[in-house]
Design a protein around this nucleic acid. Structure first.
Length: 679
DNA sequence: TAATGGGGGTTTTTT
DNA sequence: ACCCCCATTA
């Protein structure tokens, strides 16, 4: 037998070696989903399928990376070639780069991230004078999410607005006009947004001729986390198969947590509608957690109105398993102290920091804890929340990279010009206008930009002219030199802008080098920007470098960012109604159910230790008297669910919380090693 | 006429 | 950290 199959259980093996019909694998948390999927890829390779003719699709890049790595390891036994795959968005990007001409996109098309999308919508709204009659304007970010939701669910804008923004739903005709204008504008600028990647991919896949070619490129298509698919992605998938039965869907309806992105677990549950002849294997044997942890998860699942498909069973009973703890704390402060105490206690018992995670609903929920951890010198990495790309200076340089490949990218111009001293929205706008031709189009090529630049520069105040001129000259060398050399020239031109525009410029300048480095492995500069949008470093740790290379560190993460991972010990904080479930989501039954699944995902990350913390009070205004509100424990901690917990009342003594992480590293040697590189 | 700096209010989740 | 609004400054 093909070796990797031997370690699988019967059901996993059945899934891994299933032939012919479309296959659906319902796999609860910890049931070896990734192992099974990887084994299936290995089995396909073993039977002679070419690796590049297997497409592995996932929804998060972390999952994509893990799976492609594991698959690559299998593939090396027979061949070094790589299995194709990635997130839906990254695969779409690759397809569109190759077929840009066929779908009507310019070669160096740029990608707008969420913030760019909102900004462009705002610009178009102003230009067209749309929505001005409204007494209360929707924020630009609201417009962006309306657009995205409409496109991803394939529902009519009016319906989406009645649901999401009923207070301005009457303006749906104007918003629709805005969205059409926005679409035209993107086309004129030669850019696409994240949703366009899927829209263009679908258009290509549904096209008679091009679609045949795209579908024929793959023998097998496998999709992980299928419960997170939305209508648009499903369309792409169906078009990519065109009735070919060689498709594998892996997922767990209990872990569907991307409803806000238009996803619905219905697509997994009703998959036979889209893939006739579908067969199903359900994996329920859990190899991850103790039965005590699973009892909590199953109790939670039992209260979901529609139930979950999989009921988890422990594989090998763990002797002396610890009962999960429900810890009531005085307030947020007390919670932080309690969590830090417990983390250090477990650490003393031998549970490394990287085997522990603190999970929370929203990224700002960890703020107070972060302070406490810093105070105690506990190193941590935080996932979710702030993104590298959202750092303004990073976007500045990436805008320049985008411009180098596509001088029509007005949003990039607008952003960069405003970094110049004495240049704000108005002057930036007028400068751009002088670059336009008779039809109002920006130049397609940089030699044309250079020709028009003399007039444009006159709009700028004196001191800005020199800086801007150097920048424009640095942009126009695409194709004449190596990409990384060009990147470095642009960095040198952008650096003085960043120095002048930001107060704390020193650490910002440091970051730019990494972007130039990244350009050494891409075909064109705009790809660095695209990679950053599609594949942003997901943690603040990536931004500053891990706390201290290869040292042990604790994981702080939003539940969304931690899916698919597991830890010996999991601490779930702020399990109070309003925070978890978030009161943003409790308006509809579906919203509450998604929060329940999110809670379920959080619980099922734990292998042996699980602690859920509930602060009893929340201060309305920090450090001002005793202005507080009493918190209700999360509604998901029902009486039945609570039966599975040990109840603990945190009594953090006055002098508690003084424990500091004791050094386990050989500091002097580390320091010497670091210095050895310097002199 | 435009840019800039200060102040106050907000912040769900991600490709 | 970001957005929005308003007063001050070039």
């Amino acid at each position: 037998m093909f070796a990797p199959l031997e370690s699988l259980n019967a059901l996993q093996r059945e899934a891994a070696t299933f032939d012919d019909a479309p296959l659906r694998v319902i796999a609860g948390p910890g049931t070896g989903k990734t192992t099974t999927l990887t084994a299936r890829v290995g089995w396909l390779l073993d039977r002679g399928v070419e690796p590049e003719r297997i497409l592995l699709l996932t929804f998060t890049r972390r999952a994509a990376r893990e799976m492609l790595q594991r698959a690559a390891a299998l593939a090396t036994t027979s061949t070094a070639r790589r299995v194709a795959g990635g997130t839906f968005h990254s695969v779409a990007h690759r397809v569109l780069r190759r077929h840009h001409a066929a779908v009507g996109l310019p070669e160096g098309f740029g990608i707008l991230d969420r913030a760019d999308t909102a900004d462009l919508l705002d610009v178009v709204r102003a230009d067209r004078g749309l929505l001005s009659a409204l007494r209360r304007q929707p924020r630009k970010a609201t417009l962006a999410s309306l657009y995205s939701r409409t496109v991803n669910t394939g529902s009519a804008l009016e319906a989406v607005m009645r649901e999401d923004t009923p207070w301005c739903a009457d303006a749906h005709v104007d918003v629709g006009a805005l969205f059409r204008a926005y679409t035209e504008r993107k086309h004129a600028l030669g850019v696409v947004d994240l949703d366009d990647l899927l829209l263009y991919w679908r258009a290509a896949a549904q096209d008679a001729a091009l679609g045949d070619e795209l579908a024929a490129a793959y023998d097998h298509v496998l999709v992980d986390e299928f419960q997170d698919v939305n209508a648009l992605q499903l369309d792409v998938l169906v078009a990519l198969r065109r009735g070919d039965p060689r498709v594998t869907l892996v997922g767990d309806d209990a872990q569907a947590i991307y409803g806000f992105r238009g996803a619905s677990p219905r697509f997994l549950l009703d998959a036979e509608q889209y893939f006739p002849g579908l067969c199903t294997v359900t994996l329920e044997t859990n190899y991850r957690s103790t039965q005590k942890v699973l009892d909590v998860a199953n109790a939670l699942a039992a209260e979901a109105p529609e139930g979950f498909s999989a009921v988890l069973r422990e594989h090998v009973p763990h002797a002396g398993a610890q009962i999960p703890q429900l810890v009531r704390c005085e307030d947020e402060r007390g919670q932080s102290v309690e969590v830090a105490d417990r983390i250090l206690e477990l650490y003393e018992q031998g549970v490394a920091l990287h085997d522990q995670a603190v999970l929370f609903r929203a990224s700002h929920h960890s703020a107070d804890l972060e302070l406490e951890l810093s105070r105690r010198r506990v190193p941590f990495v935080k996932y979710g929340g702030l993104r590298y790309i959202e750092a303004a200076h990073v976007k500045d340089l990436l805008s320049a990279f985008r411009l180098a490949d596509n001088p029509r990218d007005e949003m990039a111009w607008l952003r960069l010009l405003q970094r110049l001293p004495g240049v704000g929205p108005q002057r930036a706008r007028r400068t751009i206008d002088t670059l336009r031709d008779d039809e109002g189009q920006l130049p397609l090529r940089h030699d044309e930009v250079a020709r028009r630049w003399e007039r444009a520069a006159e709009v700028l105040p004196g001191p800005a002219r020199h800086l801007a001129g150097a920048l424009v000259r640095s942009l126009g060398a695409a194709g004449q030199e190596e990409v990384v050399v060009h990147a470095e020239r642009i960095r040198i031109a952008v650096e003085p802008l960043i120095m002048a525009a930001y107060e704390d410029s020193a650490p910002r300048i440091e970051d730019l080098g990494a972007l130039v480095q990244a350009s050494s492995s891409v075909a064109r500069l705009t790809d660095v920007a695209a990679d950053e949008v599609l594949d942003p470093p997901t943690s603040t740790g990536d931004l500053a470098g891990p706390p201290l290379v290869d040292e042990d560190w604790l994981v702080l993460s939003t539940v969304h960012s931690v899916k698919g991972l597991e830890f010996d010990a999991v601490h779930v904080i702020h399990a109070a109604d309003g925070n978890f479930p978030s009161d943003m989501s409790t308006g509809t039954p579906e919203g509450i159910e998604e929060e329940r699944r999110l809670f379920y995902v959080a619980m099922t990350r734990a292998r042996r230790h699980l602690a859920v913390y509930v602060p009893l009070r929340y201060h309305r205004v920090p450090r001002r008297g005793d202005d507080h509100s009493w918190a209700q424990p999360s509604r998901f901690l029902s009486e039945v669910v609570r039966l599975n917990f040990d109840h603990v009342r945190s009594s953090v003594p006055v002098h508690a919380g003084e424990g500091v992480l004791r050094s386990r590293i050989d500091g002097p040697t580390r320091v010497a090693d670091h210095l050895a590189n310097l002199f």
